[in-house]
Nucleic acid binder design. Structure first.
Length: 223
DNA sequence: ACCCAGGGTCATA
DNA sequence: TATGACCATGGG
């Protein structure tokens, strides 16, 4: 019972504390992909505003994004920050998306190929690619982010400096390959990280320690 | 005024 | 390969 919990036990604790998260917010696979780019290092609230602007200007479609003037596109993306960068990244992504033949064609590809394709796009890094694979293409890929590294290094399960791929394979090799599990798990980690396990102060001083299942001082009692 | 947010790229050593 | 600068808005 002492020492480190298993990843599955962590999942069960998170699920018990927060319940199902119903990710990813978005009405279509393409909207999810757009959201994945726009939320890079950005609060989701601001992404919602930018997506609302795109909808208002009838630009939430790959053809419309490519047809828009870059300046106009950037202006609509202003609320989510890095708007010039993200306008370019969105265009890069949409050019790829249409040139490859759209959703139906892409959905026919195996996960490894799709992941390689996504990573080749300028502006799509590992986390954004995995968001798209898991939440838009519904592939069993474990998405890693800063919250994941922070939580699991605090739990003593991985080194604090572990790289993205190593952390991803830590989960994918430990857990059963389950798209629904991976979906819920990443969402729960984000929820926990946002609301409870803040970067500063640390978990055990966050003021919500009573409801934080992963308080550093409590973990030996819990497991 | 400072820190943070559902990252990624690029230049430099 | 590994840092550091840079991108930028909005909320606590």
């Amino acid at each position: 019972m002492n020492g480190a919990p298993t990843p599955l036990a962590v999942y069960q604790t998170l699920f018990a504390a927060h319940g199902p998260q119903h990710w990813w917010p978005g009405d279509s696979p393409f909207e999810i992909m757009v959201g994945a780019v726009l939320t890079q290092n950005t609060a989701w609230r601001n992404v919602e505003r930018a997506i609302a602007k795109l909808i208002r200007h009838r630009t939430l479609a790959p053809e419309a994004i490519l047809a828009a003037r870059q300046e106009a596109l950037a202006e609509w993306l202003r609320p989510c920050g890095y708007f010039n960068v993200k306008a370019r990244r969105l265009v890069n992504f949409c050019r790829w998306y249409l040139q490859e033949g759209g959703l139906t064609v892409l959905a026919g590809r195996d996960t490894a190929t799709l992941r390689m394709n996504l990573l080749a796009i300028n502006g799509i890094g590992p986390e954004t690619a995995d968001d798209i694979l898991l939440y838009a293409f519904e592939r069993p890929v474990f998405v890693v982010d800063a919250y994941t590294r922070r939580l699991f290094s605090r739990l003593g399960l991985v080194p604090e400096t572990i790289g993205y791929e190593d952390l991803r394979s830590f989960f994918e090799s430990t857990l059963e390959t389950d798209r629904v599990l991976f979906n819920e798990y990443h969402a729960l980690i984000v929820r926990h990280g946002k609301e409870i396990c803040r970067p500063r102060p640390l978990c055990d001083r966050c003021g919500l320690a009573a409801v934080c299942a992963f308080d550093a001082e409590q973990r030996d009692q819990r497991w």
